[in-house]
Amino acid sequence: MIVGIGSDLCDMRRIEAVLERHGDRFKGRIFTSNEIKKAEGRYGQTRIGTYAKRWAAKEACAKALGTGFNDQVFYHDIEVINLPSGQPSLKLTNGALERLRALGKDGYKPNLLLTMTDEHPYAFAQVMIELLPNKE
């Protein structure tokens, strides 16, 4: 059963302007070290798109959690990762993980679904939170 859904559309030009103006300060406030490493390993618009998609994913996840960036949910608590298959996913920590766990019900475990895409000048992400039967 779906217990949360969120989406975000981000203008890549806005992220590019903030990166030019605030650079490492902005990166360090919003992105994890792994996300920065992934983006910085790319060039030009691909680099900007990588940051913009991750920004959109964090915003979409906060919406799906039902909190936005309130109630102890911060940008660093939401990290975009890739599964071994390459599929994007999310790793939640601290307040975001606590909120995710609170959405669960007895006999069910929460599962996060993420999709991201970009087409200059926009980046888009959608997050769904579903509860799956606990098979333990």
Rank of each mutant, 00 (worst) to 15 (best):
T115D: 03
G68M: 13
L112N: 02
W55A: 04
E59W: 12
L113H: 12
R14I: 12
G86C: 03
E79L: 03
K27W: 07
M12Y: 05
T117M: 07
Y51V: 12
K38V: 02
Q87C: 02
Y51N: 10
P133H: 11
S85Q: 04
R42K: 15
E79T: 09
A52W: 11
T46L: 11
G6C: 06
T46M: 13
K105H: 08
N111Q: 15
N34L: 08
A102G: 05
Q45F: 04
Y43M: 09
R99P: 05
L132A: 11
L131E: 14
D106G: 03
N70Y: 14
D8E: 10
L114P: 12
G104I: 00
F74A: 11
S7G: 07
K58V: 07
L112H: 04
E35S: 10
E59L: 10
K105S: 14
K37E: 15
G49T: 06
E20N: 11
G44I: 06
L97M: 10
E98Y: 01
K53D: 01
L9W: 04
L103M: 14
P121F: 07
Q45M: 14
P110A: 13
L83Q: 14
R29K: 15
T117K: 10
K105I: 00
A62K: 01
T46I: 03
K53F: 00
G23I: 00
K37M: 08
L97P: 00
V80I: 11
L97Q: 15
L131M: 07
I5R: 12
L65E: 07
Q72T: 01
E20T: 11
I5S: 12
D77G: 02
N111S: 06
R14W: 04
D71E: 15
V18D: 10
N134C: 10
I129Q: 07
Q126Y: 05
G107L: 12
A125M: 08
H22R: 14
N70S: 15
G66K: 03
G41V: 08
M1A: 13
A123F: 03
A17R: 15
R14K: 13
R13T: 13
L19D: 04
E130K: 10
V18K: 10
T93C: 03
N134P: 00
I78E: 11
